[in-house]
Every structure is written in structure tokens, then in C-alpha cells.
Design a protein around this nucleic acid. Structure first.
Length: 918
RNA sequence: GCCGAGGUGGCGAAAUUGGCAGACGCACUAGACUUAGGAUCUAGCGUCGAAAGACGUGCGAGUUCGAGUCUCGCCCUCGGCACCA
């Protein structure tokens, strides 16, 4: 051990050692409890960024913590290596996507290794390798057999910038998930996975994982699935001689020919007597059927609305209601009234039935629409009112100032008057069903998952089109359908594979006649839906993974990643798991027991308002002026211009990115890791300040210096040579049996031991609760306490040496999850061998409660709620004793003398509160 | 607009869940050592005040011996969704 802390030297030493020893290689072992620690796998862009560093430092801390607690820990990593950037590189720079990807994986693996992350590298998977994507295809075929994979022509989300289709999840908010540009619509023939078939299970199984997942993620998933229960109701079209078997787009309708009708979905059938119109989407089949009879101006308006709905969503103009009366009329099956049929821009074809019953009295949108077009507004629900008010007649007919959307009691609703909304909903739905004009219904916001991508760099969809046999799945024994080495890359929206005859020309698996392969590839979110099962059995060539291995390791105990995947990846992977359960591959419904979403790492930049030029903060790029208290008064560029600050997501274009390699080079991996864990609570945003990482180095150096100073002393008793745990046993028996020391040095020893054991408990509790900033603070406090003992090794008494030795051993072991290289090196120094913490049987230090307690504790005394004094008492002193002491206290008496004591509240070990009067 | 999370020193944050607000770190101030310090060590660091002390967790009320924490009403910030019938 060197006297000085050289991060680079010890980091490379232990990284080599771990790799050579296979320290983090895990195997199934029924004798040990398992722990599957997983972090979201990176896309191999070529460079690690600070967000990765944070994500993987957190995961590594958990993995180490669990190892020290005696778990058999599986901690793998891999590569989400299919996807657009590789193809973009091919288009722009003519490189081969495979070589580009492999190069990036190589360099990023180097970066991960330099961080010293404790992965079992033997299990690495990469999505773009045939041995992996073979099983994407395998799953696709299984889902095809199960009827979960199907093809249909539909309007898809299309990103003009990326020239690519997007799933609904990827186009959330009308914005492309990758490039952030607005999304348009396009008609395409696409393969879909039937996620909607699992909508109920996705919702209902959520209760199993609720406790371990962030509430916000659960909520966003629920909102995304968007289940609403209500009813379909059919309104017959008046004076129409058209007959229909359904409302056009709905397969669930009753069979048999009936007069033309329009089917609406409503969650509020109890308001049906308040219907003033039927409003349908511009593309609704009803409109299509009657289009020839409509006047010019109506058609023009419908065209206009249709065009607006096709365009990228503009949230500014969206709120303005627009519509036109089609001239058709529909009959309300409950009241018998006939109402106009309108086209409205606020009704969307892709939700419910594309038609709504407009009830302006009790729906805000309908209210706004009715106001604008002067349609009648009637009250049919009245708030529940008290008995004495019930008689007042005016209520029922009073004009509505705004829509009343709550539940209440029905009025103006014929025979249903007086029913509550709840009762009416149930009874009216039944009534509609019995009379054949409606039924109970549930609709979802969730859509099926469109997985076709007109891209080269993805898993080919294993389907063959044959002129005689039609759409034919590839045979399992022919998997993988391999990508060609290269293709003509244009990025124009057609799959490059469609230009590679060697790829698409094939024989039909059925009839052996010439046939054509599907040339679209799968969405990369397919790869990430099941990758963590592949880690369990990465070399299996027959099936995705061995079910027995999965039975031991899965589900994932702890998953960590960014919350930008709250909807996309995490819904897909939950869906995939449920499919795997139905296939008999796993026996659980939910793949991830606990989920932690870490906050973003952001950078601070300063910019010149006039030019918009950004300057990244620390390395002497700017001059910071502060007042004597340290508050920033101004920041100037080196040429004297006043700058404004901005905290933004780190990115190349903003020039505020921080290169992990550079940080490792300057400060060391341990310091970088320690800092990201310490700087902020894990779910908060983290503003990267280089000064902070210097603080982390200082802490490590302090610990280092301390061990150096005490190293000769700490190896004195031969009994200690067996290791830290043994050392601590010795220390424990030395002091436990000894009478409580009272004088001089031994008092110091006792205080330090107390701090040591309090720290053990705090760090254990905090890590167990997935907090990382607070245990680091606790370790810093312990290090300060060791420092504060202020005894030179030569002058220390035996129990002081023992106490210091115990404190140092505990500190070093508990440092492992945060700064493993430093901890390993210090530990090696303490035990006198280089075998490593785990090989030596190092464990998380044991907490001994009795040692954590002070012999005397300070108890604050309040008089009338204000802190007036402190008394010292033995722990667990009884209430009477504390009260007597408190009332006898000189300072307390200043406030109580001559006054009446009304009440004394005593909280043992906490406080005494005296209430006086007069 | 709706939903969710949150507002604590100059900054990042703690606070045993109703019990000494500001632990720990950064920044800052003073001093020591030093040829030097962007190293290290010592001390200080919520506001006002010379001190005693008073005030202090977005604002206003309330419950309580006692409120950062609980209740009610406002204000603000950040995220998500955005006509979901």
C-alpha cells in the first residue's frame, strides 16, 4: 500500500484481479438465496454518458450490498444494439452497421470496465447478433401461432425526420420519442402484437408489484392502458333505407340485419335523456355511406376537419371545437326523440366507436360544442341534495352555467327519474341489452403494438409471402432469418432489405415454390422486452433460455433505469412476460419485483444572451464573482461579458456533456461513482458540478490516510490475521466482557464504538431502502469520528486500538458498494492478503445494538414549547426521574419559579416538555 | 384544463416518521503550515443582534405541551397526459 492514494493504480489492479478470478461470475446455487440485480441495458452509441454512470453506479452499489449480505447475486449487462443510429451512420458515412456497432460495444465495454462495475461478463448479450435475434423470431412465431401477431393495413404514426414508423407509445404526445419532432400519419401495412388482449392483466396484475414500483410509473401505465367501462348504445338513423349489420367499424355488434344505426360508446348512459346530438368522427363510416347526399359546404367542412386531424398535433389550436351538421338524424332509443348527427373535430375514430352521444349538460366538451353551435342544453342529472331542499322545484329546470359532470340523481328522464346515477347506469345498460340496442362494454386507450419497421438494422420478421399459400410463417428450424451483411441504405422510408434479392428471394416453406420474404424488421423494443431472460442462459441454441435456470433467477429482484421508459419498455416487457407465462416458460406474471427510476444527470452551462453562445461551466472557462458568503454575484466570460446560467440535459450540441473517461482519468472511478451516489437522492435530478467530485476524492483520501497511519497498529494482535470479520469478533469479545470504561482514553474508545455501530445500522437501513446519499453521509460521519479520536497510535490504549480497528474495518467494508476498488485495497491492507473481500468471506459488518447506545444521553427540556435547557440522563431513565431532573434544573427553574406547573410531558429518551401558567 | 411530485441556508441536501431544524458535502471567511497552494490541518458559517435573546422550513389559518412533518384554504415550481366520450 502506498502512502498516497493513487486511484489509477489500485483501480486497474483490482479490475484485472476481479476479471482473472471471476469474482462476479454467478451460477445457480440452491443453497444460497439469490438476488437478480438488473439495470436497463445501454444502446451502444459509442460513448458512455453520465446518465449511464449514475444508473450503473446505483445498480452496482445494490449488487455489492447484496453480496456482502450473503446473497448469490446475478448482475449482468448487455447491448440494445439494434436500432436507427447504426443505420444512420451507414447512410451518412458509409460504414457497415455491424462493424460500427461492434466497435462501439468494444469501446463502451472498456468504459464500463474502467468504472469497475461488477458484471458477470460471460453472460453479455447483444441484440444484433443472430444467436440473440433468432429468439426474437422464435417468439414472433409463437405469438403468431397464438394469434397474437397479425398484420393489418392501418394509419400508423410516421416520423418524417427519421423516416420511420412509431408505435403509439413511441409517438406519445404527438412527438417522436427519438428525435422529438412532430409525428404525422401514414397508411401502411404493419405487423402488430396484440397487447390489447393483455390489457386487463396488465392492469389487474399491477397490484402484485405496486409496493415495489414508483407510484408515478404505475399511474402512467394505468393512464396509458386507460380502461373505461360503460356501454355501447345504438341510435337508429331516421328515414334511412340503408341496412347494416354493424356500425361500420365494430366487430362486436349483434349479428343480423337491422335498420342503419350508429353505435356510440358512453361511460354515462345515465345521462342519455340529455342527448342533443350524435357527434361522429370525420372518417366515420356513417359519413362515408351518406356522403353522396351531402351538400358542398358540408363536405368541404368535413374535408377540412379530416385534413386537420391528419396533421401533426398542434396543442394551441386543438382546443377549439369545430363541426358541421350532416343533415342526418338519429333516434334516441330511450326517449324516442330524434337528434341531429354532427361531425365534430373532437371525436376521434380510433377511440371507442368513433361516435359519441353529446350530452352538453353533463360533459364539458359537449357543453362547449353546444354553446358554440347553439344546440339545446338540458339538465338530466341533479346533485344529491338534503331532504329539506328536495322539494324546491326550481333546481330541475334551472339553466346550467357549466357542465355538471358528477354523479347525482336523474331528472327529466321519464320513468328513470329519481334513480341515482349508479343505479341508472346498471339498470339502463341492462335495459338496452334486453331490447337489443346496446350492451355493457369496456374500452381501452391502449392500442396493439405495431412492430414493423421499414429498416435494415433490426430482427427480420420471419414471414414469407407465397403466391399460392399466402402468408406463411418461417419454420423454426430455419431460424434465424439472418440479415445480409449490408444493403443499399437510403433512409427514404422503404426497407433496404427490399432491395436485396439474396435476402428476400426464398422458397415457400409450405409448397417450396419461389416466394418472397417480409422485408420489414422488428421494433427494437422487441429485443429489450425479454433480454434479461437471455442472460440466464446466453449460449442456448435451442430455446431462448432454460426454464429451470429461469425458475431460480427470475423474477428480477431489483431493476434500475430512467423513468423515460415508464410507459414504453416497461409495458412491453410486462406484456412479454405474460405471453411467456402462457407459453409455460415462466410461472409468474410480473417480471420485476422492485423498480427504481433514477433521476437525470444535467449540466450547468452559462450563455451569452446576445449571441446565444454557451460556455460550459467549470474548467476555468468563466470567471465567477461571489460575495463574502459564497453566493454567486455574477458569472462572466473570459472576455468580460455577463452570462446567464441554464441547467439542461447534457448533450453534445449544448456543450455541457461530461466525458466519464475524463472524470475517471482525473479523479478515479471510485470518486466519480461515490459522487454521483452522494450528490443527490437517487430519484432527483443531479446537477453535475465538478467541485463535488473533488469532495469525493478528498473523502477517499482521508480514509486512505487514516488506514495508512494505523496500519502497523491495526495488524498487531495475531488473532486478527484471519480477516476483518475475525478481527471484529476479537474486538467484540475484548470489549463486550470488559467493564464499561469510565476514564480517559477508554471513554474515547466507547464513543467511537458507539458511532461505529450506529453507522452500521444506518448504512444497512438506508441501502435496504434504496437510499444512497444518506449512507455515504453516514460513512463520512464515521470517518470524521475516527479522525476526532485524536490519539496517536503510539499513545493509544489497547481498547482504543481495538475500537479504531473495528471502526476502520467496518468503514472499509461498508465503503465497498460505493468505492469498491478503494475498499478492496484497504481491506487487503488490513487482512494482509490480496485475495479480495469476497474470497476472504468478507460480510457486511454485524450491528450490535448494545454497543450503539450511549451511557448517558442529552435530553432537551422545553418550557411552554420553547427549548430552555438540556439534562443528562441514563438511557431509558424512567419518566419520573426525568421529570424530577428537569424541574430541578436551574435554567428551567428560571422559567417556572413562581408559576403554576400545569402539565409535564415526558417522552423517554427524547424530551421533557413543561407547561406553566401565570 | 386534468393528474402526479415537490417548495427547508449562498448551493446539493438531512431530519429516527409529531420531539434539539439545517447532519453530511460543496462554496465561502479567518488562521496555521508552506518558496508556493486550486494540497493539508484548525476554527467559523440560517437571519437579526455587541450580547442575552428573538425570529426562522412558500403564504394564511387550525389541531397539539410541541408542527418541516398532521388538517383546511391559497401561491409557486417541475414532470406526465392532453379533446379517451
Amino acid at each position: 500500500m502506498d502512502e498516497k492514494y493513487f486511484a489509477k493504480k489500485i483501480e486497474s489492479k483490482w479490475q484485472k484481479k476481479w476479471a482473472a478470478d471471476g469474482t462476479f461470475e454467478a451460477e445457480v446455487d440452491d443453497a444460497k438465496p439469490k438476488f437478480y440485480q438488473l439495470e436497463m441495458l445501454p444502446y451502444p452509441s459509442g460513448n458512455l454518458h453520465m446518465g449511464h454512470v449514475r444508473n450503473y453506479s446505483v445498480g452496482d452499489a445494490v449488487a455489492w450490498y447484496k453480496r456482502l449480505k450473503g446473497f448469490n447475486v446475478l448482475h449482468p449487462i448487455g447491448w440494445d444494439s439494434f436500432g436507427q443510429p447504426a443505420e444512420d451512420a451507414a447512410i451518412k458515412r458509409g460504414v457497415n452497421p455491424r462493424e460500427w456497432t461492434e466497435d462501439n460495444i468494444r469501446s463502451m465495454r472498456g468504459q464500463l470496465e474502467r468504472l469497475g462495475l461488477s458484471y458477470d461478463w460471460r453472460r453479455q448479450m447483444a441484440a444484433h447478433r443472430p444467436e440473440y435475434y433468432k429468439f426474437d423470431q422464435w417468439f414472433f412465431l409463437k405469438m403468431h401461432e397464438m394469434g397474437l401477431a397479425y398484420k393489418k393495413k392501418t394509419q400508423v404514426n410516421w416520423c418524417e425526420t427519421d423516416q420511420a414508423t412509431l408505435s403509439n407509445e413511441q409517438a406519445s404526445g404527438g412527438i417522436c420519442w427519438r428525435c422529438g419532432n412532430p409525428v404525422t400519419k401514414k397508411d401502411l401495412e404493419q405487423w402488430f402484437l396484440k397487447t390489447t388482449a393483455y390489457a386487463d392483466r396488465l392492469l389487474d396484475d399491477a397490484s402484485e408489484i405496486e409496493a415495489g414500483w414508483p407510484a408515478s410509473v404505475m399511474k402512467r401505465q394505468r393512464d396509458w392502458i386507460g380502461r373505461s367501462t360503460g356501454a355501447f348504445v345504438d341510435f337508429t338513423i331516421a328515414e334511412s333505407d340503408v341496412h347494416t349489420t354493424d356500425s361500420g367499424d365494430n366487430d362486436d355488434s349483434p349479428s343480423g340485419r337491422k335498420p342503419e344505426f350508429v353505435r356510440v360508446f358512453t361511460t354515462r348512459i345515465d345521462t342519455i335523456y340529455g342527448v342533443n346530438a350524435i357527434v361522429v368522427a370525420a372518417e366515420h363510416p356513417l359519413v362515408m355511406r351518406h356522403i353522396s347526399l351531402m351538400p358542398e359546404d358540408v363536405l368541404a367542412k368535413i374535408q377540412q376537419i379530416r385534413a386537420e386531424q391528419m396533421n401533426p398535433t398542434d396543442h394551441e389550436t386543438e382546443a377549439i371545437k369545430d363541426g358541421i351538421d350532416t343533415g342526418l338524424r338519429a333516434i334516441n332509443p330511450f326517449s324516442g326523440d330524434d337528434v341531429p348527427v354532427w361531425v365534430g373535430n373532437y371525436v376521434m375514430m380510433n377511440y371507442g366507436t368513433g361516435a359519441v352521444m353529446s350530452v352538453p349538460g353533463h360533459d364539458e366538451r359537449d357543453f362547449e360544442f353546444a354553446r358554440k353551435f347553439g344546440l339545446p342544453i338540458e339538465r338530466v342529472i341533479q346533485p344529491r341534495i338534503d331532504a329539506e331542499q328536495r322539494g324546491s322545484e326550481g333546481e330541475e329546470n334551472s339553466a346550467l352555467e357549466s357542465a355538471f359532470t358528477e354523479y347525482g340523481v336523474l331528472v327529466n328522464s321519464g320513468e328513470w327519474n329519481g334513480k341515482t346515477s349508479d343505479d341508472a347506469k346498471r339498470e339502463m345498460t341492462e335495459f338496452a341489452a334486453n331490447h337489443g340496442f346496446g350492451e355493457a362494454a369496456t374500452t381501452y386507450r391502449l392500442r396493439d403494438w405495431g412492430i414493423s419497421r421499414q429498416r435494415f438494422w433490426g430482427s427480420p420478421i420471419p414471414i414469407i409471402y407465397c403466391d399460392t399459400c399466402g402468408t406463411v410463417p418461417e419454420k423454426y428450424e430455419n431460424l434465424p432469418v439472418e440479415l445480409p451483411d449490408t444493403a443499399p441504405f437510403t433512409g427514404t422510408g422503404e426497407s433496404p432489405l427490399a432491395k436485396v434479392p439474396e435476402f428476400y428471394e426464398t422458397k415457400c416453406p409450405n409448397c417450396n415454390e419461389p416466394a418472397r420474404r417480409e422485408t420489414d424488421t422488428m421494433d427494437t423494443f422487441v429485443d429489450s422486452s425479454w433480454y434479461y431472460f437471455r442472460y440466464l442462459d446466453p449460449n442456448n441454441t435451442e430455446v431462448p433460455f432454460d426454464t429451470e435456470k429461469a425458475a431460480y433467477w427470475t423474477p428480477v429482484d431489483q431493476y434500475i433505469g430512467g423513468d423515460d421508459h415508464a410507459v414504453m419498455h416497461l409495458i412491453y416487457t410486462r406484456f412479454w412476460t405474460k405471453v411467456m407465462k402462457d407459453l409455460g416458460l415462466v410461472d409468474f406474471d410480473e417480471p420485476v419485483k422492485r423498480l427504481l427510476t433514477q433521476g437525470m444527470v444535467v449540466g450547468e452551462t452559462f450563455f451569452d444572451d446576445s449571441t446565444g453562445k454557451r460556455i460550459y461551466y467549470p474548467p476555468s472557462n468563466v470567471t465567477v464573482e461571489r460575495d463574502p458568503k459564497g453566493k454567486v454575484v455574477s458569472v462572466r466570460s473570459n472576455d468580460g461579458k455577463e452570462l446567464k446560467n441554464a441547467i439542461e440535459r447534457m448533450s453534445k450540441s449544448k456543450g455541457n456533456g461530461v466525458d466519464p473517461d475524463e472524470m475517471i482519468d482525473i479523479y478515479g472511478a471510485d470518486a466519480a461513482r461515490l459522487f454521483v451516489l452522494f450528490a443527490a437522492p437517487v430519484d432527483n435530478e443531479l446537477v453535475w458540478h465538478e467541485a463535488g467530485i473533488e469532495g469525493a476524492v478528498r473523502f477517499l483520501q482521508r480514509v486512505w490516510r487514516f488506514v495508512w497511519k494505523w496500519q502497523n497498529v491495526s495488524s498487531v494482535p495475531p488473532a486478527v490475521a484471519g480477516g476483518v470479520v475475525a478481527a471484529m469478533d476479537v474486538v467484540r469479545s475484548e470489549t463486550r466482557d470488559a467493564p464499561p470504561a469510565t476514564a480517559g482514553g477508554t471513554e474515547r474508545a466507547r464513543t467511537l464504538r458507539m458511532k461505529t455501530h450506529q453507522t452500521i445500522k444506518r448504512v444497512d437501513d438506508n441501502l435496504g431502502a434504496l437510499q444512497f446519499n444518506t449512507p455515504v453521509a453516514a460513512l463520512m460521519e464515521l470517518s470524521n469520528a475516527i479522525y476526532d479520536i485524536k490519539v496517536e497510535p503510539a499513545d493509544a490504549s489497547p481498547d482504543e486500538i481495538a475500537a479504531v480497528r473495528e471502526a476502520v474495518s467496518a468503514l472499509v467494508l461498508m465503503l465497498t458498494p460505493f468505492a469498491p476498488h478503494t475498499a478492496e485495497e484497504l481491506y487487503a491492507n488490513i487482512v494482509g492478503n490480496d485475495n479480495g473481500i469476497l474470497a476472504n468471506g468478507g460480510r457486511f459488518p454485524e450491528y450490535i445494538e448494545e454497543l450503539s447506545k450511549a451511557s448517558e444521553i442529552e435530553i432537551p427540556v422545553q418550557v411552554n414549547g420553547k427549548l430552555r435547557s438540556r439534562i443528562f440522563a441514563a438511557p431509558d431513565a424512567d419518566e419520573d426521574a426525568l421529570q424530577t431532573m428537569a424541574l430541578a434544573d436551574e435554567k428551567v427553574r428560571e422559567y417556572t419559579d413562581g408559576k403554576e406547573i400545569v402539565k409535564v410531558v415526558v417522552v423517554p429518551n427524547r424530551l421533557v416538555s413543561v407547561v406553566v401558567k401565570g
